[in-house]
């Protein structure tokens, strides 16, 4: 009972964080067709903003939406400054890798300069612990396990049941046709970045209530999100969601049976195998589309 419960909770918790991160990467890829390497920094900055708002005395229920909205705005701005000017270039994928990496480096060092290198922590969503199936879990982890699917479902509903979501899905598929039905393509690109940044910020705040924060805290989740989208396929948002939980469980099981040190190596072995067998990802249709 102990082993399976531990793997189950560990997997659900990690999977939730990975899903939240990976969906943002996939959203940006499907709408704009670029890879956002500042996604990990979005996560970190979201957590630091939350810490800052808490530090000036705002309560957590206010801080949470405030930090998320602020990150959405920052995501929009970043898109406008380092992505939008490059749209239309033939080598945009490569160029945006460089510009978003550069932006990530700037933001990371800016945060280091502004808030210093000392590790920080933000309070958990819920205080306290409980025992389920013989395993001790914090209420914070349980809250994340419960909230994440709700947020992902809300995103899915937004993309599939609203006209704006429909527009986001359309712009991913044919830019000229989108222009000719009167969609504001640049605004939709900004929106995709804003949503991605907001989700990353939420993931950052979740993580910051569980582990210590540092300016490089986004690097590992970004790497994991990359593995998730390569594994799940980046051409939809449901593929990465499934993949995120699968990778979460895999990691939890591997941690339990093989230990922390072997897990990254095993994870990359899975990644390499996936690339060899199904380079388009495990859960994809053949084209780029959302949902």
């Amino acid at each position: 009972m102990g082993a399976s419960a531990e793997i189950l909770f560990g997997g659900l918790f990690q999977g939730s964080l990975y899903a939240m991160m990976a969906v943002g990467l996939a959203l940006v890829w499907t709408t704009i067709g670029v890879f956002n390497f500042s996604h990990g920094v979005f996560m970190m900055l979201g957590a630091y903003l939350a810490w800052q708002f808490l530090d000036i005395g705002l309560p957590l229920p206010v801080v949470l939406p405030l930090a998320v909205v602020a990150m959405a705005a920052i995501g929009w701005l970043l898109q406008a400054s380092v992505v939008r000017p490059l749209i239309g270039r033939p080598n945009i994928v490569l160029v945006v890798v460089i510009t978003t990496l550069a932006a990530a480096s700037l933001i990371e060092n800016g945060v280091l300069e502004l808030w210093g290198p000392r590790s920080k922590q933000i309070p958990p969503l819920l205080e306290g612990n409980t025992t389920i199936g013989g395993v001790g879990v914090s209420l914070h982890q349980i809250a994340i396990i419960v909230i994440t699917p709700i947020i992902l479902a809300a995103l899915w509903l937004f993309l599939n049941r609203t006209r704006l979501g429909l527009a986001l899905r359309a712009v991913a598929q044919n830019e000229d046709a989108s222009l000719l039905v009167g969609l504001n393509v640049t605004a939709l690109y900004g929106l995709a970045f804003a949503i991605a940044a907001a989700l990353a910020a939420l993931a950052g705040i979740f993580l910051g209530g569980y582990r210590f924060m540092s300016p490089v805290m986004g690097a590992d989740p970004l790497l994991k999100a990359l593995i998730v989208v390569v594994f799940g396929g980046i051409s939809s948002i449901s593929g990465p969601i499934f993949a995120a939980y699968l990778i979460g469980f895999f990691e939890a099981a591997s941690n339990y049976y093989f230990g922390l040190y072997w897990t990254p190596a095993l994870l990359f072995a899975v990644l390499i195998l996936t690339l060899m067998v199904r380079p388009e990802g495990m859960f994809v249709r053949s084209s780029r589309s959302l949902a």
């Binding site: 006209r163 899905r169 359309a170 044919n174 046709a177 249709r285 589309s289």
Partner: peptide, 14 residues
């Protein structure tokens, strides 16, 4: 080519 992965209903709504 329109929107390959949208339905007819979706296209008309757009």
């Amino acid at each position: 080519r329109l929107f390959p992965d949208l339905t007819i209903a979706d296209c008309l709504a757009l």
